[in-house]
Computed example of a mutant assay.
Amino acid sequence: MVKALIMAGGIGERLWPLSTKKMPKQFHAFGDSMPLIVQTMNRLRGLADRVYIITTFEQRDIFNQLIKEIELESLLVEPFGRNTAPAIALASMYFDPKDVMVVLPSDHIIRDLESFQKIIWDAIREAQTHDVLVTIGITPTSPHTGYGYIERGKAFTVKRNSFCVKKFHEKPAFELAQKYLRSGNYYWNSGMFIWRTEVFQKALEKFLPDVYNGLKRAFDGENSIEEVYKGFQSISIDYGIMEKANNALVIPSNFYWNDVGSWDSVYELEEKDTNGNVIKGKFVLHDVKNSLLFNMTERSVRISSVEDIIFVVTSEGTLLCHRGESQKVRELLK
């Protein structure tokens, strides 16, 4: 069977003060009237026989309150967050060995549904017929410095346009990102993965044996999941497995993709007025251009003679910065 796993335990710190622990970004709507998590669930229709969601105890209550269409048995809960590798590993214990896992983040915007589903189907077929760990690469449209990159190697299956992964690369400086863009062999790392459960767990046992063995003990009844989770390091699936594996594939894509990872990403995907502004809420403006303005309170905000700013005010707090600098919000919160 094909079973999807949606990762929905993050907080979305870089979208503070809208995204908070009480209401993380996947429960907000960007570029659409539906919350990001609902958009993710909808695009899996026709792809997966069953959809699971993994989240934390903190967010379980939000799901119960806001997302009524989720079956309780499909909601998997981590005792606490340990990044994506332990989360996916825990979820995999509920899958059968031959199941194909389609692992997706909960907070992405994807347009051109037909193209998205075709590429996921190609990845599913690769996972069904080969012992591979497949990821989806996003063809870059700019020298973006906020994403990791995947360098492709030799072709693997021509009819499915899949390639062996040569190397994963960290978020680059601007000059290096320009070289990646010009070469045509590099893709943005989307954080989407497809594999058979047994292939993933074999890699988990090899590269993260503490996680694999701890979860095995928990599911054999020797320890509780909370007990073994306490000993897990916080590690991403990229660092923990994908960068070390020699059976990783990448399938390039050209559909519109936005990880809504910062306020600059929100500015990119939302509609602008004639002055290039994205405006939500009550504002009185004079000579304001090319700015993102969110006012989620009932107070009137008045702004004059500014350009290229991000201004967000909620009951949680207020953020003001230049466009292009919103990646630093996480540093502000520290």
Rank of each mutant, 00 (worst) to 15 (best):
S305K: 14
G324P: 00
S315Q: 13
G12P: 03
Q128W: 08
K25R: 15
G146R: 02
L285I: 02
I53Y: 04
L5D: 04
S74F: 05
L113W: 07
S224Q: 06
V266A: 10
L113A: 09
C321S: 12
P140F: 02
K3L: 04
N277D: 04
F219H: 07
S19R: 00
G214D: 03
E271I: 07
L90W: 06
K328M: 12
R125V: 11
Q26M: 15
A89S: 15
I11V: 15
A89C: 06
P105Q: 14
Y212E: 10
E298D: 15
F27W: 03
G153D: 01
K230W: 08
D264Q: 04
Q26W: 12
S305Q: 11
A87Q: 10
K21W: 04
I37N: 01
D287C: 02
E13A: 14
Y267H: 02
K166C: 06
T318C: 14
V284T: 11
V288N: 01
S183A: 15
R125D: 12
S315T: 07
L204F: 06
F63S: 01
R196W: 09
K334V: 10
H130V: 05
E175K: 13
F27D: 00
N161C: 09
I309D: 04
L320E: 09
T139V: 07
V228N: 02
C164R: 12
E227P: 07
F219I: 07
E198T: 11
N246Y: 08
Q327A: 13
N83Q: 08
E198F: 10
Y147D: 10
E198R: 14
L5W: 12
T135P: 06
K289D: 01
I119Y: 08
I309C: 03
P209V: 01
F193A: 08
I62G: 09
L36V: 06
V102G: 01
E175H: 10
A173Y: 05
L104R: 09
